[in-house]
Design a protein around this nucleic acid. Structure first.
Lengths: 217, 217
DNA sequence: GTATTATCGTGAAATAATCAACGATTGCGG
DNA sequence: CCGCAATCGTTGATTATTTCACGATAATAC
């Protein structure tokens, strides 16, 4: 298994986004300095990250953008299709289910689940909403390994248990619930409010002492 | 200005969430060991974080949950009301604008903005959608310091410029755009796809070598 | 009242992450 | 063809973060 440091791992999504943006305007190479300025990190660190990924740059030119993007995608397994269900068809679930950007990362939503009888069998975009009673069987039938969890807090653990029992190994958790799962199942807590907390701290200290640039905390 | 390490700062949202959950079921104290097990970190680290926050625990009992939660909220400035606009009334903007959970963190959405004439002056929940032509004046009138950015990629920079010009100092950026802002303006990139990337990596390596628990990377 | 046990607080050690420095290489301008 | 400027790759130093170890303390059981 290929390994990089945790810190480097956290930077990969940013690198990927920057590379995609540069690629879309036709750039072929990007230097460690350019990347470092965008991410507000040291340029040596960028070179270290590239070395960790076994990517070699070219003197006087930088790194090949497409090769680097593809390398990151392969490292993360994004070239494989990951089929998933959106469990919870509320506003957030709907927003995620209709977001067009996921497909370029190999993330394919194959259905939605909700407990509300008024929603069941209706559609959101091209996705059908299935009843929660079919959750386990859908996971088994399609051998789904990952779910997107956007149910209300009170239902989160119960739904999780059903999914895990049916074979799910990764949970993208958008609820504020601290899920209990057995070993071998990975939970990614997408605590969106955390982003606001960082900004709130910035604004609070901005008010307290103007004229002081803060770095990402 | 109160400071803690970056690493500790990143843990605050998780702590806060756990504390809220424990508080809601009536618990009064929580030990460093309990917190460490939930976050999958070393328990000394939790105690260090508490020391950084100037929170003292009680021998044989742990830390007072409410006091700790309030301390984190004050540290982050969450006791202040932060008024914000949701700029971009698509699916994601709508989901964020209607999310009830923000108010408990002092985050108050005072309106929405969209460029689509069919949406303008309609309402989402209790929020009115204003035309993009009013963006600058709304920010100035209410002295808004933060916006939630959920517009399409192509419009992101242009809208940002208007907001910054009008006095916005913090941007919660849900677009995949690398925004250019002057010094003194903080951008928080909420790159949701990053969460999926971590899970994808986990699943890829799970397939490659079963029976191997991965930690948060 | 005393022993026991859980838990904290903290200094020192270990590990991880970042940064500074510099030689080596490559493309470009003339 | 030659020198210049940009950029990489890498080593070693520095800083940040985490972990270990242990003494101190407070609640609890008896």
């Amino acid at each position: 298994m290929e390994r990089i440091s945790k810190a480097a791992f956290r930077r990969l999504p940013r690198y990927h986004q920057i590379l995609s943006a540069y690629e879309s305007v036709g750039k072929e190479f990007i230097s460690s300095r350019e990347l470092s300025e965008i991410l507000e990190i040291n340029e040596t660190l960028v070179r270290k990250d590239m070395a960790d990924l076994r990517i070699r740059g070219r003197q006087n030119q930088g790194y090949g953008i497409t090769a680097l993007r593809v390398r990151i995608e392969n490292f993360l397994g994004l070239q494989e299709i990951t089929e998933t269900l959106v469990v919870g068809a509320g506003n957030l679930g709907t927003a995620l289910a209709t977001y067009a950007g996921f497909s370029q990362y190999g993330l394919k939503i194959v259905g939605m689940i909700d407990s509300d009888p008024d929603k069941v069998f209706s559609t959101v975009g091209e996705h059908t909403i299935h009843p929660v009673s079919r959750l386990g069987s859908l996971i088994r039938k399609r051998d789904i390994k990952m779910i997107i969890l956007t149910v209300p807090l009170a239902a989160a653990q119960e739904v999780t248990d059903v999914c895990v029992e049916a074979g799910v190994r990764a949970i993208w958790n958008f609820t504020p619930c601290e899920l209990q799962v057995p070993p071998g199942v990975k939970v990614r807590n997408e605590q969106i409010i955390g982003g606001f907390m960082a900004l709130s701290y910035y604004l609070k200290n901005l008010a307290a002492e103007e004229g002081n640039e803060e770095k990402e905390a």
